[in-house]
């Protein structure tokens, strides 16, 4: 019975098995779903593949996508952030305060708006890491706080950016269109992809990303390895808040106004995108590409159903069903 355990035994695996394991699989499934949606909708309606409609889809994905990028980090740690929707509208309101009320230059106002989100995220992290309040509760609290503050500061009314004509183009202008006439892809879309590239780099190549996975995989082991878990948790929630702040700026620029009552519900859309993209709510697994695909699945679905004149109520029903199917596939995959 001389068994040398030091020689690696090759892992038994079929092609199908390896495709279904790991989050590459979920990405492929989500990507396949996206393609199927594209094919079905373009066959069903000639309007779907129109350039303007595709731009509309991209634009509609921008805000939800940016929010989803941030919350991907939090979900990968095994946490959750319910505050991103209202923090987004709070950040939008603060951007308006900086630019419209205080008359600060637009870039400064934008930076202020993004930092507002970061501060809210920092607060989430602080409550979770130091007061040891579960993320669900902590961010639920901050969700209400941000919602209330947005309403108080705005006086319950939308704030318009009429005095800052350079603000709306931040999302709705087209740098590409200026260079390549006819290819009027809005800046918001560029910002989404830029933010995704940065998020991907942070998640995969930096210490912060490494600890994001480590925390989600085994928090106690990470702590016992000498990592300052509290500090990195706060950093991760702050990063998530920062993305919410960016989402707020994009939202405000797109509507040319800060709508204080708009944000609630966005957090669930973002979480849904992350989940469809294969990030595990149990933590330890997550990809930026998956999240982006997930966000597109949601907006393509809504857009396509609208083009087919499916009433909005039914769009919501279908979205819900898709989320359940996506998570169920994830569970089946995990059982193997």
């Amino acid at each position: 019975m001389a068994v040398d355990i030091t020689t690696s035994v090759p892992q038994k695996s079929s092609l199908a098995g390896s495709l279904l394991r790991g989050n590459a699989a979920q990405r492929i499934l989500a990507f396949a779903a996206l393609i199927i949606l594209f094919v079905v909708f373009s066959l069903a309606s000639p309007n779907f593949l129109q350039f303007n409609n595709i731009i509309g889809i991209l634009l509609a994905t921008a805000v939800n996508g940016v929010l989803a990028l941030g919350v991907t980090f939090v979900i990968t740690t095994g946490g959750i952030d319910l505050s991103i929707g209202t923090v987004m509208s709070f950040s939008a309101v603060m951007t308006a305060v900086f630019i419209t009320f205080w008359g600060l230059p637009t870039p400064v106002g934008i930076l202020g708006g993004i930092l507002t989100g970061a501060v809210a995220g920092f607060l989430n992290g602080l409550v979770i890491a130091k007061l040891r309040i579960p993320p669900f509760i902590a961010t639920l609290g901050v969700m209400y706080v941000a919602k209330g503050l947005a309403l108080i500061i705005s006086g319950l009314r939308p704030i318009y950016f009429n005095d800052a004509p350079d603000f709306r183009p931040v999302a709705m202008g087209s740098v590409i269109g200026a260079i390549v006439p006819g290819l009027e892809i809005p800046n918001a879309v560029l910002i989404l992809f830029g933010a995704a590239a940065i998020a991907g780099f942070i998640l995969n190549r930096t210490v912060l990303g490494r600890y994001t996975f480590a925390l989600g995989s085994n928090e106690e082991a990470t702590r016992l390895s000498g990592v300052n878990v509290d500090r990195w948790k706060i950093a991760i929630y702050t990063l998530c808040g920062l993305f919410s702040g960016l989402g707020g700026v994009l939202m405000a620029a797109r509507l040319n106004s800060a709508q204080p009552a708009l944000g609630q519900g966005y957090e669930l859309d973002a979480i849904a995108a992350v989940v469809i993209g294969g990030t595990s709510l149990a933590g330890g697994e997550g990809t930026i590409l998956g999240t982006i695909i997930g966000a597109f699945v949601m907006s393509v679905l809504v857009n396509g159903l609208r083009i087919l004149s499916v009433p909005q109520e039914w769009q919501t029903v279908v979205t819900g069903a898709i989320i359940i199917v996506a998570v169920y596939i994830d569970i089946i995959r995990r059982r193997r």
Binding site: R210, N218, A221, T222, V227
Partner: peptide, 19 residues
């Protein structure tokens, strides 16, 4: 109870906290 991060690689586990 083993204190490893199952989602990370062998090397990532060994150098966790001092990458």
């Amino acid at each position: 109870e083993l204190n490893l991060m199952p989602h990370l690689t062998v090397a990532q586990n060994i150098f966790i906290g001092r990458e």
